[in-house]
Design a protein around this nucleic acid. Sequence first.
DNA 1: CATGAATGAGGTTTCATTCAT
DNA 2: GATGAATGAAACCTCATTCAT
Lengths: 209, 209, 209, 209
Amino acid sequence: MSDGRSGRRQRRKEERPGEILEAAFEEFALNGFAATRLDDVAARAGITKGTIYVYFPSKEELFIATFKEMVRPMMEHIRALTAAPEGSALEILRTHFRFVYDRMVADRRGRELLRMLMAEAGRFPGLADRWHDEVIGPAIETMRAVVRYGVARGEFRPTVAEVFPHLLFSPVLTASTWCSLFGDAHPLDLAGYYEAHLEMLARALCAEA
Amino acid sequence: MSDGRSGRRQRRKEERPGEILEAAFEEFALNGFAATRLDDVAARAGITKGTIYVYFPSKEELFIATFKEMVRPMMEHIRALTAAPEGSALEILRTHFRFVYDRMVADRRGRELLRMLMAEAGRFPGLADRWHDEVIGPAIETMRAVVRYGVARGEFRPTVAEVFPHLLFSPVLTASTWCSLFGDAHPLDLAGYYEAHLEMLARALCAEA
Amino acid sequence: MSDGRSGRRQRRKEERPGEILEAAFEEFALNGFAATRLDDVAARAGITKGTIYVYFPSKEELFIATFKEMVRPMMEHIRALTAAPEGSALEILRTHFRFVYDRMVADRRGRELLRMLMAEAGRFPGLADRWHDEVIGPAIETMRAVVRYGVARGEFRPTVAEVFPHLLFSPVLTASTWCSLFGDAHPLDLAGYYEAHLEMLARALCAEA
Amino acid sequence: MSDGRSGRRQRRKEERPGEILEAAFEEFALNGFAATRLDDVAARAGITKGTIYVYFPSKEELFIATFKEMVRPMMEHIRALTAAPEGSALEILRTHFRFVYDRMVADRRGRELLRMLMAEAGRFPGLADRWHDEVIGPAIETMRAVVRYGVARGEFRPTVAEVFPHLLFSPVLTASTWCSLFGDAHPLDLAGYYEAHLEMLARALCAEA
DNA sequence: CATGAATGAGGTTTCATTCAT
DNA sequence: GATGAATGAAACCTCATTCAT
């Protein structure tokens, strides 16, 4: 389009890796690691197979890099969340889950990332470790902190949610999985689901009904 | 050739398919569909590769048969559950989830089945359909019926759980996934988790705290 | 030819490895390890590429197996030679060299083996070790023993040949190399060369000229 | 662009081909032609792959040029040797072999050159031709002349060495090959070997023992 | 002149599938 | 029915070569 594209070969050292990771993610999400052909990744990225190897030493490394790349934004959100809480604890949870539903349930790519994680964790143990250490572990801890904060300010009752914050989060995973697996044939009313999730949460946690 | 061996061979012949499905499940669960070698399935079943083709026309059909085979017991349990409820609704849920935790969370094979479903649903849409129609759909409906039954008998308050029984079930999926992915490095106290799950359930559903 | 060849696929588990090694040797000798294509080996053996992998796990292993296979007959000759000497020492040398010229100089395959050894020893250190331990080392020792035997019986003078029997052997390597490299354009009169070699030997070793 | 750098660049430009040949020789000697990567040659020469193509049109041409470059000094020595002999014929041989041992046996690069020649002669027939015409052929002829000169002056007896001067030279090839293949594990006492070689030579050639 | 990103042909290796026994 | 040798279509990966800068 611009004059930069003067020939068949473009100098795009800066952009290439990102483009490849983008294409790789789509293919890996679609087919899984083993069934993905680097030819297809290349075609999707508008390059040839060989070029992938200029930037990534092997299919495995490409996969790991792809996963890291997609995990990063999640990680950054989680990190941002660890700030000292203020105001209504329920409101904090509501805001947090708003983001989580947008990123991991409504967004196809977020869902695919989760699915990819579950599908490939067996062959790439590093994936699960990374996900735990950088996303789900911190997220659990943050939720625990919010619950405690809510209890401390009298907004929440003391509950087992302090021990297993997983319970608060679990509807998200279910929704994400549902949309991935059955979304086409049996769509889920996400807006309603989200509200129902939060209502259950309030009922389970809040000091008075 | 001699009739002495034909009896044993006959017996063997009837057991073969089941043995193959058993071996196939382990391998598929371990490696995923694409990365599983029929050689390994055969080795695990104590036969040779060619024999698989006596009973199954292709790797894909073997996979589908494997999945069907493993889904059957789940399906049967769910079907048994649709009987008319009686007694405490919460107790019914407790009993139901007891079974579900045993089969889908504590049991490695149940967890693997779930993981396999999520991993391969993209390439085998029939898997998701079957799972929905025969397991998760009926399970959801059954839970909805139990919730309504509880509301009808004054044990439960009317809640969104009637619209989204998924919410009640979701901790199970989270636990199963957690154990599959992080179980080794970060084990989950399953007994405690189960109790916490049911306590949250009671608090969210029951008429009085 | 015989009725054994009833279809496209022949059961030749016993013969296959040998046939493959045979074909592999020709190709490796012709092109060297790196430049040899398994396709060509397969074609020469009258099979397809995949079949090679039924018997050999990798190109490297095939190469090593090929070398071992070709070295074996040499090794056996050398081993047979270590018997206690009797009669004329010069005659023993003459007989020994007769065999060596036949096998390592006149025979194209023997020459190729030597050339292969020299060409690939860098990448396959095991080759040189094996050659030294099983062929050239024992050969040197045997010649040393013959020289000593000749000295002991008064047939030979005491010479440095006892310390460096390599000197006695070296014309063989030169002839083999010469035929490999220049044989077509500048053929060597092998019969004459052989006689000249032995004459020099006699003159250098024998007690009286 | 600025004249300040052009001087250095200019100087570099003239040295480049030699540096590349130097690097290429090391890599070719190490890995053989087929297994050598131009990337590695470039890295060793401190340049990039593309630059090689500024000076050499292809990998094959680079290889041939490398060989020519390394053969040149040998060739020049041989040419210098063809001067009319004077003094002791044995002394001439002794001096000649002194040089040859230094260059083709003791010097790693000389040994590698020989090895490279033997390894690649099959794919590059020009190599063998060149080596024969410019090195080994003249060397043989020179030695023949020296032998005849020795016979003419009564220092040597008439022997088959006049017909096959190869015999006189052959210990050199053996030593070179030995050091290349077995040097690390089974070192050769080169000084002793050289003396033994010359002693055998004297005994085989000289008029009186 | 020198670079190095990009190419793509070609190599090794894998493995589902076939079929003669 | 059971076997397992053989197949051959891909797949991953390498690297000589090109060419815009």
